[in-house]
Simulated assay, not measured.
Amino acid sequence: MLHPAASVIRNVRVSDGSAVDIRIADGVIASVEPATPQAPSADAGDTGLEIDGRGMLALPGLVNAHAHVDKSWWGLPWQSYGGEGGTDGRIRHERARRDELGIPSVATTAHVLEQFVRHGTTSIRTHVDVDLGVAQRGIEAVREAVAAYDGALQVQIVAFPQDGVLRRPGVIDLLDEAAAAGADFIGGLDPATIDRDPVGQLDALFRVAADRGVGIDLHLHDPAELGAFQIELIIDRTERFGLAGRVNLAHGFALAQVGASHRRDLLQAMAALDITMTTVAPLRLPQLPLHELDAAGVRFGFGTDGIRDLWSPYGTGDLLGIAWQYARSSSLVRDDDLRRVVDIATGGSAPFAGLPVGRIEAGSRADIILVDAENPMDALVRTPERELVVGNGRVLFQR
């Protein structure tokens, strides 16, 4: 349920430590001014709420750039992990059990969105399964659940072929249908190991994306040289089909596993076409190298992946926790690096949700979270509770 719009958030600190009042109008930050001693009222009538920030740290809303909000069992009774291991084994297990759990549904999607919001996420890019079993039902459920936020939560949809593209005749037609109906992106999955035809899968996806004017956001788990080979194919097709700035590579484990010179060449080619990356910061694998990505100019974002689903019982919906995991696993300890990770988790990743870069400054969309932390570095290493979450100027959560 949405609360009234906020008009002023008083007495908060921004990243440089200064105390400010943040004025909001029509869902946008109207001004950021030095804090005044004026006591806020509980309700400012037609102008909206005035909120006392109590000296807490204000950060831009978190951006979850890789989620699966359609396929969680959170809110249902505990589901024991089962089936076989590996990507294909997990796919089969999910297909065997999702119907009995009512996945996808508006109710379970709404529960996931609620968990994201209470942890400070205000912008999401979510992959939604599109296959021969569910067709477009997942996308319909996600759209209905998102509509309850009335624009306060920004969501991009990726029509995602979790069960493969070419190995299931008819899936590419479903992706084309989803793109024609308004999906922002179409997805793909391990062209070599799932479809066993990387050229065929990628050509089919890029044709649909180019014809329909949508982007591509592709899962690539394949390791080392096999994964790097597919990244080269993606680079080639991004240029050939004129999709620069509209292609994202999710996971991309291979980039952290090939040699330094090969990785440099791949990153430079990706940056030239603005091919972006998203990571869920897996614990047991090398992390994408922050400094190399930044040096090459490859934009990237963090995501929670699936949470409490038939693939894994883990996940809380806290994107800041994923940023912590990335920083910790990457052995990042210097203030500049920790600040950079916070920036990626917040406004710096806003373009992954179709938004301009978010900042606590006049003109930015009013996506704001308050935490009891000394500074952004402290917020990252402690991941404190979110005290207030504002999306598009509306209060979405308040402790």
Rank of each mutant, 00 (worst) to 15 (best):
S349D: 04
L49H: 00
I275Q: 03
A256N: 09
W311E: 09
R308P: 00
L388E: 01
G315A: 03
I194Q: 11
G188I: 08
D176M: 01
A178Q: 03
P60R: 11
A269Q: 15
M1C: 03
T316E: 09
L205F: 04
L113W: 05
T121H: 04
L355P: 04
D88Y: 08
W311M: 11
T193E: 03
G354W: 08
P40G: 08
N392K: 06
P169M: 12
R263D: 03
I360V: 13
V106P: 01
P77V: 09
V371H: 04
I9S: 00
I24F: 02
V32K: 07
A296K: 04
A65R: 05
T121Y: 02
H291I: 03
F160N: 01
A362V: 02
G102K: 11
Q79I: 12
V199R: 14
D217S: 11
S41Y: 08
G187L: 08
R90G: 13
P161I: 09
N375K: 10
V357G: 07
D99Y: 11
D190H: 13
A256E: 08
T121D: 02
I235K: 10
G358Q: 12
V381N: 07
A209I: 04
D16V: 13
T383Q: 14
T108P: 00
L220W: 03
T279G: 06
D150A: 15
P351Q: 09
P198F: 09
R95T: 07
M270D: 02
N11W: 00
V333I: 13
L59F: 12
L189G: 03
A25Y: 01
I9M: 01
A192S: 14
N375A: 11
A145I: 07
T108N: 14
I368N: 06
V8E: 06
I231V: 15
S7T: 04
S72N: 10
L189E: 10
V381H: 10
G164L: 07
N375G: 13
E114H: 14
A228P: 07
L2F: 05
T87Q: 13
D378C: 14
E84T: 15
